[in-house]
Design a protein around this nucleic acid. Structure first.
Lengths: 229, 229
DNA sequence: ACAGCGTAGGTTGCATGCATGAAGCCCGTC
DNA sequence: GACGGGCTTCATGCATGCAACCTACGCTGT
């Protein structure tokens, strides 16, 4: 099992292992509800069960899988309620991020945002939906990083991991009208940040996230995502 | 907190292990920067190193300890910057919680808040600082739970675990004037929630958390940077 | 045909052993 | 006395083995 010369950087192997298993789950290889056998993963990634177990524990903590003791580890499918809850958190955290970034003045992330908006308009003009989706993603992450609050970034990462399933759905959901509106909202957020208006930036961001989530939650939207303040 | 009916006898042992190690860390048994030897913990809790390792990985994920590969697991002391970041998050999350709770109308947590305020005034009158600190704690948690957003609760738990060191400091920091102000702020928050005013509740809560954190961050001397190695 | 039960298969939970790597100490040298 | 290199001492990282336990399936008796 162990090769005579294992050039795995020890820890590197294990950190990468977590990522690889996460990709396996997020990639849809294992559909929600499916069992993730430790032995299989161990063989697949050529390690023993021990590091696999540790990785699965992490994934449980991230909310991606559910470990039923003495039974097995299963891919967890977020309930609709959880998705709503996660979007509420997303709104709050991204609002905070925009607010904090607006206080910082001229930071590198601002340039990213400006460029991102330009590219986004181009992508829309070209009808490049994939490119646009990627840019939307980048826009949000740039603001979160622009907050310069690492703890916020950590919590946001966790959040987005749990929403990662939905990301796939998101793209397909976007209506044409929504795309235009979304771009306009991005523009508003950027403007507020440029004006160093934390309040306005937070408000704009929250409105944007709220509108986007509403759209994302649309399909089975017989549930009411709670009225706005 | 009181929601887990964990009927897992086997995992219960291990979950208990995590809690026990966490208490060891939070209780100050091991000061920040101290090494947490797996072998010692294993012997102390009469299990093997394997479950201890898994628990330590969890604690790392919670931000309480730092695992330096091939070296050891060390109790992590948040830097002042991280504490500021965490308080910013706290403000945002508790604001969200208050907002969500305000939308819900008459919920059980409201009664808890009302009673809490009455008890708090009594504790202040009696000069019962410990009791008051506990009540403050309960007030905040009641609102977070009152949000009825489990994901929010999860993230908040994580956050508070990382701030748990500071909680101890907090009590000693409170100035007499601050206590009166804090109680008044709690009253305002409750009133806004009772009035079903999400926006007002969020605002009041954020102001309160901000004021409290300012106070907590006041004495820089109480947070010793503690050089490691 | 159906309900209840016992058993077999499979999966996890944990203990243990060994190899690897890191940090510090001792000793020799300058 | 200061400095540097090798070695000793731990502590971790992982592989493996075994036992416990859950689930499902087939068998039996009614």
């Amino acid at each position: 099992m162990q090769d005579a010369f294992s050039l795995v950087p020890d820890n590197g192997a294990q950190a990468g292992l977590l990522d690889r298993i996460r990709q396996l789950v997020l990639g849809g290889e294992f559909p929600p509800g499916a069992l993730l056998p430790e032995a299989y993963l161990a063989q697949e990634f050529e390690v023993s069960r021990t590091p696999v177990r540790e990785a699965l524990k992490q994934l449980q903590h991230e909310g991606l899988v559910e470990i039923r003791p003495k039974v097995g580890t299963f891919v967890r499918e977020p309930t609709r309620r959880e998705i709503v809850e996660l979007f509420q958190l997303k709104e709050s955290l991204e609002g905070l991020a925009a607010s904090l970034m607006a206080r910082r003045g001229e930071v590198p992330e601002l340039a990213v945002l400006r460029r991102n908006l330009a590219d986004s308009e181009e992508a829309v003009a070209d009808g490049d939906k994939d490119g646009y989706a990627r840019l939307v993603h980048e826009f949000h992450w740039a603001i979160v990083h622009g907050s310069d609050n690492r703890k916020l970034v950590e919590h946001y990462e966790r959040l987005m991991n749990q929403l990662a399933y939905q990301r796939l759905v998101l793209r397909t959901v976007e209506h044409p009208g929504r795309i235009a509106a979304s771009t306009q909202e991005h523009r508003s957020v950027l403007k507020m940040i440029e004006h160093k208006d934390p309040f306005g930036a937070e408000s704009a961001m929250r409105n944007h996230v709220y509108a986007s989530s509403r759209e994302a939650l649309m399909p089975e939207s017989s549930l009411n995502p709670a009225p706005r303040n």
